[in-house]
Structure formats: structure tokens, C-alpha cells
Design a protein around this nucleic acid. Structure first.
Lengths: 130, 130
DNA sequence: GTATCTGCAAAACATTTGCAATTCT
DNA sequence: AGAATTGCAAATGTTTTGCAGATAC
């Protein structure tokens, strides 16, 4: 944490540990609820602030698995998510083998949504010209 | 529209046409703003209601490209999105060639998020046992 | 004339912001 | 003391809900 330029306050350590200790991709609110028991003074604002800080510093990934709310993941390696429509469990899927396998085993997959961010051809050309 | 079990009211036709005529993945609010000029009586609630209906009936896809708001797409074939971080333009990416090309040309890609929905191994087993 | 569709206002919900109080060094 | 951190309350922005009025068949 220190090596990433974050002073390790009590709240920050707790929130980060909370994320490290789970694979359930919790929301800010879930983290708040969980830590509230241990830190009764904790505020939702702090959870939001700290999560934003952790994301900015690259210690945590913000992921939008579905629905209206943002989830957080201490797994920062590039990966995606597989959600079982029956049990609701969310597991990590890594590029490329796993993704390709899943796409090929279409009988088990009902939906794929993916979003890629980068620089498009046009903008790449413009930047080269400069 | 009729063949999908939707009675084609004026508002419904307008909202659907609006989506058919663009590749810009508009939000409910954008559609509302655009149609408001033509249909001054139009309400945001109707736009939300109709979009939900169109999604339920499979005429439209709801996509979450980023941020806090839902976008809509009349392209219902399975595909993902590529957003240029420079110009902000969003284009469609189809499986598999395009996706694979993009993933391989890593110099241009800064982030990949993907979400897959389906039935996990465990649940698949359970359903077979029955 | 009854069922469906529309639209307003209010509610709900996640997230952000302004600012004051607290904590750390 | 001074800077950083926390936390409350209020604001924001998107989407949903309840219900009354309008429309269509």
C-alpha cells in the first residue's frame, strides 16, 4: 500500500483487506455493511472514497458485472467474469484460453457482453502524424 | 414489432426507429431528448417503459458500456463494444475474428472488461441428475 | 366499455460533493 | 499547529413505482 503512495490508515487497510479476502466481487455497500460491525463509526462516504483511491492507484479493479451497481475486485490482472444464471455465483475468467473455451462451449453460455477501451485507428493515425 | 407480440403504438414505433437509425448506443435520456422535439407530450417514463419492453421481447439489447447509465442497441446479434479513449466513439466488435484481432493488437487496447452469463459446471451437473 | 398505454410526480437507489470534525505527525 | 483523513447530511443523476388520465379496439 505504501509502495503505491497510499498512507495506510486503519480504514484503508480494513477496506483493502476485505477485498483481498474475498472472491465475491462485493459492492461498496456490501463492504460497508460488513465492516460496519467491526468499525461502527465507519461511513459509507469513506468506503466510496477509499475504493476510488485504491482503483486510482491500481490496487483494485472496478468491475461492472451487471445491474446498476459497481463491484470491486482485488484481482487486478486483466480478466473477465462468468456469472452462473442458476446459482448466481461469479467466477473469474482469464484471457485467452478460458475465454475461448467458454465461447466455443456455447451450450453453457447465454450471454456475452464485452467492452474494450483503447485508441481507434483514426485517432492512432492522427497521433502518428504529429 | 407485431410478430414479437408488441402492439405498435406511436411512441413505441418512434422509440424503436430512433434506435434503428443510430449506431451511437443512446441512453434512455438521449432518446427522450431527441424525440421530445417531435413528440412534445412524450414522458421519460414512457421511454423507460418502452425500452424495457423492447429488451424483454428481444428487439433491443441493453448494454452497459461504462459509467452509471444503461445504453441501448438495436443490434441484437451477439457482439461487444470498443470505445476509443481519445475520441470517445463507440463501435461494435463481433466475435470471434474481430475480438481476437483486438486482443492481439495490444498496443491499441488499454482495457478489456467482459461478462459472460451461462450455467456453471456445478449447476449443469445438478440439472443432468434430475 | 374495458383493457392497454401514457405520463406526471414522487420514490428509490447508488454515488458524489461540501464542509465540519477528527486524527495523525 | 498543519495537513491529511474521516464522516455526516444534502445533492445529484438514473431508473422505478403508484396512480390517474388518455387512447385504442
Amino acid at each position: 500500500m505504501v509502495e503505491n503512495g497510499i498512507s495506510p490508515s486503519y480504514q484503508r487497510l480494513k477496506i483493502y483487506s476485505c477485498l483481498m479476502g474475498t472472491k465475491s466481487h462485493p459492492t461498496a455497500y456490501t463492504i460497508f455493511e460488513k465492516l460496519k460491525e467491526e468499525i461502527p463509526s465507519l461511513s459509507k462516504t469513506t468506503v466510496y472514497n477509499v475504493l476510488k483511491l485504491l482503483v486510482d492507484k491500481g490496487l483494485v479493479k472496478a468491475v461492472r458485472i451487471e445491474d446498476h451497481e459497481l463491484r470491486f475486485d482485488a484481482e487486478v490482472r486483466e480478466h473477465g467474469h462468468f456469472k452462473c444464471s442458476v446459482c448466481g455465483e461469479v467466477s473469474d475468467v482469464f484471457l485467452n484460453q478460458e475465454l475461448m473455451q467458454l465461447i466455443e462451449q456455447r451450450n453453457k453460455v447465454t450471454e456475452i457482453q464485452f467492452n474494450i477501451t483503447g485508441v481507434c485507428e483514426k485517432c492512432l493515425q492522427i497521433s502518428k502524424e504529429k
